[in-house]
């Protein structure tokens, strides 16, 4: 069975398209139009050993948040943000069902266009909180749960990084 995953990676101000394809056991990854079929060994939770055309790339991956990664390779530290564009159109926080306060985070680097709520107001599940423009698309960041806007960290015009917390929604204690 063929599987394909399309992601976007942000590295040093460049926006790179990433396509990961599982071709019956062989992994093909296309980065910014360059196609690779690396051998991948997962050494531990934070280490990936990639071999591409017999060239060895021993990568240490430090996960800073869901989207932000620091990859150390040959003593060079790469700050990389990974975004799944499919998740932007859906309710991005839909897999968070816990009762505690929920952080509404930016999915990719962008600019805050509108703030739709005030701090302290009660919101319904699915209500829009902040609109962020990224890659020429406006995305409404919605709350996955009902509650009160506990914090609001951005204003229109602010630039935000991927993974940055825009607001939190939870219960007033």
């Amino acid at each position: 069975m063929e599987e394909e995953l399309k992601l976007r990676a942000f590295l040093d101000n460049s926006d790179l398209g990433v396509i990961i394809e599982d071709l019956e056991g062989e992994l093909r990854v296309t980065v910014d139009g360059h196609s690779y079929t690396p051998q991948v060994q997962r050494i531990d939770d934070n280490s990936y050993l990639l071999t591409n055309d017999n060239r060895v790339y021993d990568c240490r991956v430090e996960c800073k948040s869901r989207e932000r990664y620091e990859v150390k390779l040959n003593h060079h530290a790469y700050e990389i943000s990974i975004v799944d564009p499919r998740r932007l159109r859906t309710d991005e926080n839909s897999d968070r069902h816990h009762d505690g306060p929920t952080e509404i985070t930016a999915q990719m680097p962008g600019k805050v266009v509108r703030v739709l709520v005030d701090r302290g107001v009660a919101v319904e599940k699915g209500a829009g909180i902040v609109v962020v423009e990224a890659m020429k698309m406006q995305n409404e960041m919605k709350t996955p749960r009902a509650g009160t806007v506990l914090s609001l960290n951005v204003s229109p015009g602010d630039t935000v990084n991927a993974g940055e917390v825009l607001a939190t929604v939870g219960d007033v204690k």
């Binding site: 995953l5 992601l7 990676a9 590295l11 790179l16 990433v18 990961i20 990854v29 980065v31 910014d32 360059h34 690779y36 690396p38 991948v40 990936y48 990639l50 591409n52 060239r55 790339y57 990568c59 991956v61 996960c63 869901r66 989207e67 990664y69 990859v71 390779l73 040959n74 060079h76 790469y78 990389i80 990974i82 799944d84």
Partner: peptide
């Protein structure tokens, strides 16, 4: 760093994300 090295770092990050 060479472009291939940069891309391998991106691949490692994408795999970790996945």
């Amino acid at each position: 760093p060479a472009i291939e090295e940069r891309h391998m770092a991106v691949i490692a990050a994408a795999l970790a994300y996945h």
